[in-house]
Amino acid sequence: MPNLTNQVDPIVEEYEKYLVAGAYLGNSATCLDLPEVMEEESPTLDKKEPKYEKIWEFKLPVPPESDVGSNFITLVKFESHFPEPLVGPLESPFDVLDETLPDMEKIRQLIGFMIDESKIEFARKLADRLHFLYEAVQEDPEEGPVLPGSLINFISFLRNTPKLKYPDVVLTPSNEISAQWRTAPNRHFAVVFQATGEVRFVIFTPNPKDPAKIDRLSGITSVEALMAVSEPHGVLDWAAR
């Protein structure tokens, strides 16, 4: 995306001055001399380059090309990354997380980090849910702990996608985090956050040509590319606040 901040139309610049002053400017309906500007042609003032805040710089080993399970309509395998270096002042939890700690302790510390530092809007509610899952796996002697790498990816994703609603969170049989945003059978977005840094996703969404029909898609991508892959299928229509 080109940076528009240095190419603002002088008219728009003038408009901004009035806007800041709270002045009523009129529009093409009230002032017939004003040219009508189509919205998509307008140098959109709010379309700035996205700001990338630093996420935790924990390098998870991503395996080489892996086999992907069978899928129906679409199968996606993305290897994309943030287009810009991740910069910002936030401290990585792995700066303070001792790698030699048992996984259970890592999970406990990650939940604490999420409450105190993550700036996720529903951090407290999510922490309660994660704590419940943390305790539930402890009650089963045959269960391993929640996978720390999975939780790291989940929290990183939420921090970088702050507009999402609170999801329904459960564990897979391998104790990975599965998050789901579902408001109807045809508005379903579910994601498994693997410890490797990849995510498996499923989307049920109205068919764009015939909304009475449901498109069902699934695939695997990187956690960083998940929204870029999912957004064209309308998931933010029901998953966003």
């Binding site: 329904d168 459960v170 049989p173």
Partner: peptide, 23 residues
């Protein structure tokens, strides 16, 4: 359906029907 696979509403979720890699 194990407790960790039930949604917050107590209903079975997708993970209630997922397989372990070895299954």
């Amino acid at each position: 359906c194990k407790p960790t696979t039930l949604g917050e509403d107590g209903q079975p979720s997708r993970t209630s029907f997922m397989l372990k890699p070895s299954e």
